[in-house]
Amino acid sequence: MQFFGGSEISPSPPAPTASGNNAHMLYIFNRNGVCLLYREWNRPLKTLSSLQDHKLMFGLLFSLKSLTAKMDPTSADKGNLGVPQLPGQGCSFHSFRTNTYKLSFMESPSGIKIILVTNPRTGDLRDSLKYIYNLYVEYVVKNPLYSPGNTIRCELFNTTVDQYVRGLG
C-alpha cells in the first residue's frame, strides 16, 4: 500500500465519474471497528438499527478482506483463512458491486476505513476516497478539540464531505 503523503489537500479534487446525485451512505471506521462517522443521503430501505448496521458493515468488510487475502491467486504463501491482517498486508479489495449498489472501500495505513456506497453504475472511486481521507486528515485529525477514537462531531468536516459527495455524482 502506498502512503498518501502530502499535508496539502490536492488542489483539484478528482473529476466526477457520473452526473446526478447517486451517493447513498458514507461510513468511516477506525481500526477497532468503532464507527467514527456515518452519513446518509439516500437510504429508503432500513432493516436494522444503526448500531447493528454498523457492526454488520464492519463484519462484512473484515470477512471480505480475509477472503480476498486467502483467495489471492498471485501469491503462494497466504497463511490461514481468518488470521487478522495488518492494514496493507495481504491482498485487499477496493470495491464490490451488486445489482442495487456499489460499495467502494479504502483503508489507510493507520487502519482508518472509508466506505462509500453509491449507485451501481458509478465508476472507479479510489481517488475520491483518498480525497475524503485527505479531508479527514485536514478537518478531523488536525482539529485540536478532536480526540482519536471518538465519534466525529465536526461541522466543517460534515459540510465539506456533503458538498464533495454531492458534487461527485
Partner: peptide, 26 residues
Amino acid sequence: SMHAISQQLSPVSGCSGIELLQADNF
C-alpha cells in the same frame, strides 16, 4: 455468507447479492 450479508446492507430494496468483487490482484 458474504453474499447474503451484502443483500441485508443494501440501501434500496431488491438486492440480489454481490455480482463483482474487485480485489487488488484479482
